[in-house]
Design a protein around this nucleic acid. Structure first.
Lengths: 168, 168
DNA sequence: TTAAACTTTCAGTTATTATTGAAAGTTTAA
DNA sequence: TTAAACTTTCAATAATAACTGAAAGTTTAA
């Protein structure tokens, strides 16, 4: 396997994985590109490498900054903006977990909490089944939420160390 | 909050969450509907409740069976097929984790493994950065994989018990 | 100021994904 | 067999999401 080919495959695979998990392909690909790039890149270079338009590149870079995955870099005497990615995988994982929790898990928890308050006759199977499913899911969601919380605060080694104690 | 409204909100929220995580809205909604339904439902009833076409209902129900989330039920003396969902949230979580691992994580692990074999000059920053990022991600992915493995084998109480030991 | 160098915006277009609906297929009972 | 009751398929269509490109906006240096 040759470096250029390997880079391609990595960007492809990352883009595909992203799109399967609700993150748009271009965002995942730009992120992948910056991850394996030793130096910060300009919008121009990114557009060129991934064959995407200026508009797309610009908007996606801004999204990535919003996700806390990349940052702008300014160079003395240059007008251009350079972009680079945090390369620490643990930070990346945490950042993604943090954002998705905020954007997606939190709202659902709120709805679950709200609809858990539904009132009805416990003898009515319609009510009983609804209530049980919703409260069960609510419990699971809270567990996930707490675990994410630990993860967000944790050092990588400590977190995985703890996880691996599970295996004993 | 009244039961009918609460049901609506649950189906809506579940559908939205699904679509944000790469699971199509209808699939999540049918699953939600069956989850809160005390008895098995026919295609007809599902079509009607969610206002979807027969084709869509049929295909999505088949997908859900493929995900191991629902099952068919036959009733003596009846031609119609009834569908019902496993209501155990822990089973649901495991089933989803299992399928997504198989469909999405496994292929990526394979690619990462493959491109980790890339050869090059460790002094070349292009190579060095690529190699480090890819091997780091590979390690993280393997950790996730192992944790999923534990989860798949675990009893709910045991798994969360272990997780919560993390908090001490 | 001006203009070059750069970034941002967004209406219009394209690509992707999901859905419909009607026809074809299957099963069962008489 | 036939036909009613039901399920499956899939080409056509609709809905949604992503992307383009050009124009407008901004910043900087002379």
């Amino acid at each position: 396997m040759e470096l250029t080919e390997a880079k391609h495959k990595f960007i492809e695979a990352w883009g595909k994985l992203g799109s399967e998990w609700g993150i748009n392909r271009t965002m995942a690909q730009i992120h992948a590109l910056l991850l394996i790039s030793p130096n910060a890149l300009t919008t121009e270079e990114i557009m060129e490498t991934l064959s995407i338009s200026r508009g797309n590149a610009n908007m996606t870079l801004r999204d990535l900054i919003g996700w806390g995955l990349i940052e702008k870099q300014h160079r003395a005497g240059e007008r251009k903006e350079y972009f680079y990615a945090d390369k620490d995988t643990w930070n990346i994982a945490r950042q993604v977990a943090k954002e998705r929790r905020k954007r997606e898990l939190d709202p659902v928890l709120k709805v679950l909490e709200e609809i858990s308050k539904v009132e009805g006759d416990p003898k009515d199977p319609e009510f009983a089944t609804f209530y049980k499913s919703v409260t069960d899911i609510n419990k699971l969601a809270k567990n996930v939420d707490k675990t994410l919380d630990t993860m967000l605060k944790a050092e990588e080694s400590w977190f995985w160390g703890s996880i691996f104690k599970i295996f004993k």
